[in-house]
């Protein structure tokens, strides 16, 4: 891999190895995300995409390798300290608190913060970004549709005022129309300056919005290139885009 860059990237993942019991799930993964980028990790089921996100957020601990965020080593930072460091995640399957209202969910996103005025302000911003959520402000999250829940999970992550947003399979279980909306939103958030690391099985859409992409296969990065180049790559086309 020729991944040496002179300037410091926002997120640098260096040679991480992770295991589930005896299963070697991540075999020396190395990649980086620059400030302002959307980077996507694509690959089939079980390639290690979600595991990579779990490793970054310390929900599992890599046995080897380092993860640097803004130049600081966050490999062993406990998951719950990451929002304060500037990393927020939208978990796979959205993970909204079904019994809380939309607004209460958003407030949970700002859990580590103490600035009430700032939280109020961000709440308004979130509602501006997703007017749908404003309508459903006092509705219980469990009664929202899948698309609305995805919006809520994204908005909730933004409530932590992160500098890096990790998105795990945002298209999962959504109707095609809604998937488009979700990806539009990702692009919009990115245009406003948010750096995004996107893990996605729907490679076509992911490569549509991303600047760069990495292709994962059984715990290893097999391809790394700009999103446009990956889309043209015949192997990617055949394997992940379903083209002949």
């Amino acid at each position: 891999m020729i991944e040496r860059q002179t300037s410091m990237a926002l997120l640098e993942v260096n040679n991480i190895h992770a295991y589930y019991g005896n299963i070697h799930a991540l075999k020396g993964l190395t990649f980086h995300v620059e400030q302002g980028e959307i980077v996507t990790l694509i690959g089939s089921n079980g390639a290690g995409k979600t595991t990579t996100l779990r490793a970054i957020t310390s929900l599992m601990h890599p046995r080897e390798g380092t993860i640097m965020f803004e130049g600081k080593d966050i490999t062993h930072t406990p998951a719950n300290n990451l929002p304060a460091q500037g990393v927020a995640m939208v978990p796979e399957g959205r993970g909204v608190f079904a019994k809380l209202t939309v607004e209460e969910n958003l407030e949970m996103g700002a859990y580590y913060r103490n600035d009430k005025d700032g939280i109020r302000e961000d709440l308004e911003k979130a509602y501006d970004l997703f007017p749908r959520l404003r309508e459903r402000r006092l509705q219980v999250a469990g009664t929202l549709s899948g698309g609305e829940q995805q919006m809520l999970a994204t908005a909730r992550a933004l409530m932590a005022r992160p500098r890096l947003l990790l998105l795990d399979e945002p298209s999962m279980g959504l109707a095609p129309v809604l998937v488009e909306t979700v990806f539009d939103t990702i692009e919009r958030i990115n245009k406003e300056g948010m750096t995004v690391l996107l893990v996605e099985q729907n490679a076509l859409l992911a490569l549509e919005v991303a600047h760069r992409g990495y292709v994962l296969q059984t715990g290893e990065i097999v391809l790394a290139d700009s999103a446009a180049a990956l889309k043209q790559n015949p192997e990617v086309q055949k394997k992940y885009l379903g083209m002949e």
């Binding site: 998951a79 719950n80 300290n81 990451l82 929002p83 993970g95 608190f97 949970m108 996103g109 932590a160």
Partner: peptide
């Protein structure tokens, strides 16, 4: 109380919110 509720619903998500589970 809110913290406990989050832990009850989903420990991983709670941690991702910044909660020391």
């Amino acid at each position: 109380g809110r913290t406990w509720m989050a832990v009850r619903e989903d420990e991983d998500v709670a941690a991702a919110m910044g909660i020391d589970t």
